[in-house]
Design a protein around this nucleic acid. Structure first.
Lengths: 124, 124
DNA sequence: ATTAGTGTTATAGTGACTTAAGACACCGCA
DNA sequence: TGCGGTGTCTTAAGTCACTATAACACTAAT
C-alpha cells in the first residue's frame, strides 16, 4: 500500500548499528561514533540517538563510559547474530513467505527475480 | 532484537483486509464487516477501525454506502496486487535479502529450512 | 586549571495514534 | 412511522516518538 509503515527512528538507528557490528564495521571493544556524531549523521535529535544507545546498552551490545564514549561489548556480535537468527526464523521468514504466497510467488521466482536485478545496483 | 516495532493498529487492520480480499475471502462488490463488527473483532476502538476504512477508501479499495456498509470496489484486487508487487520488489525483498546476508544465509538455505519446518504448523 | 570532547539528565512542546463516549445522517424493513 | 442496522463526525483525554534547549558529570589533553 501507500502507507508509511515506518519503525521508530531510534529503533532503526539501533538496528543500523547492529548491522555495522555484524558486518565488521565496528569490532568488539572499539568505540562507536558519539551520540552527537550519530545524531548529526542521521539528522536526528540527540535524544533520539541516545535512546538508540540505551536500547543497545540494555541488550549488552554497547558499553558506556562517561567521558570516553560507547564501545562494542564483548560477545556483542554473537549475541546479535543469535537474536537475529531467532527473530528471522520465527517472524521475518514466516511473514515474508505469507506475503510472497499472497502475491502468487514462489522462492524460485524470487531467486530468479533477484539474480536478474542483481546487476542493476542503480538507485535513484 | 526485542523491541516492539509495531505498525499502527489501523494500518495493520487495513492490510489484513487487503489480505482477505487477495485470498478471496471478500469478493469484489461484496460487503465487508461493519466498522463496529471489525472494531469488536480486533478488540479496537470504533475510530481506529474507521481510520482503516478511510485508508482503503482513499486508495479505491472500498466503497462506502451510508446506511448500507462498505463494499469491495471494482478492480480492488488488481490494484492491491499491483501495489503489493511494487512494494515487495522495491522494498521488502531487498530488505529481506540484506538481513539474510547479514546472517550468512542464502536463498537455498531458506528454501531448505522452510521445507523442513513446513510440516510443523505448531504455534503456541 | 582550562578546554573540548565524551555520556547523562531534565523540561517543554508538537504531532500521530488510540481510546472513550456521544451524537448525527442514512438505509431497509416491519 | 419507528426501529435497528449502517457510516460519519465531534470532543476529550492519554500515550508515545520526536524535537528543542539547557544543564550537569566525567575524561583526556593542553
Amino acid at each position: 500500500m501507500i502507507y508509511h509503515n515506518e519503525k521508530a527512528l531510534f529503533i532503526k538507528i539501533a538496528e543500523r548499528l547492529c548491522d555495522d557490528i555484524l558486518s565488521g564495521c565496528y569490532t568488539e571493544g572499539a568505540l562507536v561514533p558519539s551520540v552527537r556524531e550519530l545524531a548529526a549523521e542521521y539528522e536526528v535529535n540527540i535524544n533520539t540517538a541516545l535512546r538508540a544507545f540505551e536500547l543497545l546498552q540494555r541488550d549488552n551490545i554497547l558499553l558506556s563510559q562517561r567521558g570516553i564514549g560507547m564501545s562494542v561489548a564483548k560477545g556483542a556480535r554473537k549475541r546479535i547474530l543469535s537474536a537475529r537468527r531467532k527473530e528471522f526464523l520465527q517472524h521475518e521468514l514466516p511473514d515474508f513467505m505469507r506475503r510472497m504466497e499472497l502475491l502468487g510467488l514462489t522462492l524460485d521466482d524470487i531467486a530468479r527475480e533477484w539474480r536478474a536485478q542483481d546487476g542493476m545496483e542503480k538507485v535513484s
